[in-house]
């Protein structure tokens, strides 16, 4: 079940969370980029479509709400915030270790914002030298 919070507020919270996650993740040493992918582009499109055609309607409220940034997709479902992150890492840092750090960081920030973390999936899309 979704929370009782109206969709519009939820999306607003998610938006703020997505922005702060993006800037905080980018400060992590070894993370070169959050990689935009076709997946995050399509999600972005779908969300804006839902928002524009069904503002605040019951139908929209029953759908899971999703917010995307480059390389970052946040979805609320079952009262939890699920995150999928696509990353490019610097070869001077251990890629798997960095991915685990990012997972933990994302989970902490979701909790800090008063929400419950769900699945936090990380995909390493590139490992690059400088």
């Amino acid at each position: 079940m979704m929370s009782d919070q109206p969709l519009v507020d939820q999306v607003a919270d998610l938006d703020a969370l997505a922005d702060s996650l993006t800037s905080e993740l980018m400060e992590q040493p070894g993370l070169l980029r959050l990689e935009p992918t076709v997946k995050s582009m399509i999600r972005k499109f779908k969300v804006s479509l839902v928002a524009s055609t069904q503002p605040g309607s019951r139908a929209a409220a029953s759908a899971p709400s999703t917010v995307t940034r480059d390389g970052l997709v946040l979805t609320v479902a079952d009262d939890r915030v699920h995150v999928s992150a696509d990353i490019a890492t610097d070869v001077e840092h251990r890629a798997l270790g960095l991915a685990e750090q990012l997972q933990a960081l994302i989970a902490r920030r979701i909790q800090d914002s008063g929400l419950a973390p769900g699945e936090i999936d990380i995909t390493i899309l590139a490992i690059e030298g400088q």
């Binding site: 070894g30 610097d90 070869v91 001077e92 840092h93 251990r94 270790g97 030298g129």
Partner: peptide
């Protein structure tokens, strides 16, 4: 220890 590629402070070490 990180398993990464710190270059031990040698700026000339060319990787690529």
């Amino acid at each position: 220890s990180q398993g990464g590629f710190q270059q031990d402070g040698d700026p000339d070490a060319r990787v690529w």
